[in-house]
Design a protein around this nucleic acid. Sequence first.
DNA 1: TCAACAATTTAGACCGATTCTAGGTTCGGA
DNA 2: TCCGAACCTAGAATCGGTCTAAATTGTTGA
Lengths: 134, 134
Amino acid sequence: MDTEDSDIRMRLRRAGLRPTRQRLGLARLLFAGPDRHVRAEELSREAREAGVRVSLATVYNTLHQFVDAGLLRRVDVEPGRACFDTNLSRHHHFYDTGTNELIDFDAEDVGITGLPEAPGGKTVERIDLVVRIR
Amino acid sequence: MDTEDSDIRMRLRRAGLRPTRQRLGLARLLFAGPDRHVRAEELSREAREAGVRVSLATVYNTLHQFVDAGLLRRVDVEPGRACFDTNLSRHHHFYDTGTNELIDFDAEDVGITGLPEAPGGKTVERIDLVVRIR
DNA sequence: TCAACAATTTAGACCGATTCTAGGTTCGGA
DNA sequence: TCCGAACCTAGAATCGGTCTAAATTGTTGA
């Protein structure tokens, strides 16, 4: 898409990131289509298959820059490897401990009561709910 | 402690684990004193300092065996490394994203409503709540 | 008690995921 | 067009963790 493309360019610009060939190629893979969870190695393979020439190091760099820019969210549930989530809305996760699959669910309907104050006068940044299923 | 020691011996026995010098030494480090969070590398260092001769491989093996035996719980919040928790009661965690520190809080007072059904007819194994603070 | 055998431990090799390094490339403004 | 900063890259290095094969140690039954 052309509108999508210039949208991405603008979001990168706003984050102080030059819209390079590599970043645009990866962004297209990430943001075309529905929300998804992806790992670096996997995205690297997809890029290769789609003819986007980009090194693995750049895939890692780009994913982290996108997280810092608020284009992606990082999810830590699996031990020893990072997962990146294109869904930026308030949501939580089911985590299937058998298949290692992550499934989003909307946070709007979820209510959490009885949380204690954050210790040491710290500020709550985010609340992550992981429902482990089997 | 002597009573503590024979208690640990018994719990290991019940789990089908021989109470070896290494396992007893690590168990003493883990379970003497208040509840704690610990990583393998750290426990290995503590053992060395306490004069408990045990290889890093055995520390890893033992931690996993203790988790399987229900003596420890594994916590996954930090990317790329496992943390083990001696607190077996129902509780959740504050996670200080600045210091990487984990702080327990009781789950008894916490209420969670509006959770969707587990997808695919799966069973809910556990619900982990991580309050990220800064 | 002790032989015998399974469980355990170990050093060190190995692994996958990720980061680092150093040098070459490209972008964008003057 | 030229320059400097931002960027990309291959390959080395690192990190947490696992595996392997051989030595050691518990346990058990005679």
